[in-house]
Amino acid sequence: MKNLFGQLSLNQKIAVVTLLLGLIAIFAGNPYQGNYTRIDAKEIALIVQKELDHITAEELADWIIKEKSDFRLIDLRSENEFSEYHIPKAENIQLIDLNNYTFLPTEKIILYSEGGIHSAQAWFLMIARGYKNVYMLKGGLDEWKEKILFPIISENATPDEIKNFERIKEVSRYFGGSPQTGKIEDIRVKKELPKLEMPAQGSPQTGTQKKKKKEGC
């Protein structure tokens, strides 16, 4: 066999080796590893335990106001819900599509849904696919509304709380929200979601739209 191979010309040798590699390829499986993943259960439990898996609405609001662009905000809800209202700079990717979506390993990804359940499930899937830099918005859009868009301070708040509320008010107005003062019972007053054009000051085009030049020829 070895002798036989030795007698071949260089071109023939190349052909034989290539053919062998091609033959093995039939049985060697899929080079895209997308759907099969390994997870380290202990590592994940540790992340959750240490609360390294989420960011709060206030933190997110702060980032958006400061026009930070080192993260991608993913809205997991349906298209209709997304077009009705979404947090500025968010992109709409539904849970089922998330699995086919490739992020850069270096990207920081913030997931949110209505409450917390969907984003937690999506978070787990992302971690399982090997993404390290993934976070949930704590409490989801519900908490975003409660804390940022429609913050309420009770009438008998302490001076400290009032001082703090002044700052929150500003943040809220930035996002087109309506901070209120009143009794806790009044929380359920009619809240109108801000128009999508808000905030007027920020430019919603930058960030998600500012894609890099294409990589093709």
Binding site: L19, I26, A28, G29
Partner: peptide, 14 residues
């Protein structure tokens, strides 16, 4: 399968 396409391309090339 991807591997089969690889083989077919090799075959075609040779």
């Amino acid at each position: 399968p991807y591997g089969l396409v690889v083989f077919l391309v090799v075959l075609m090339a040779i």
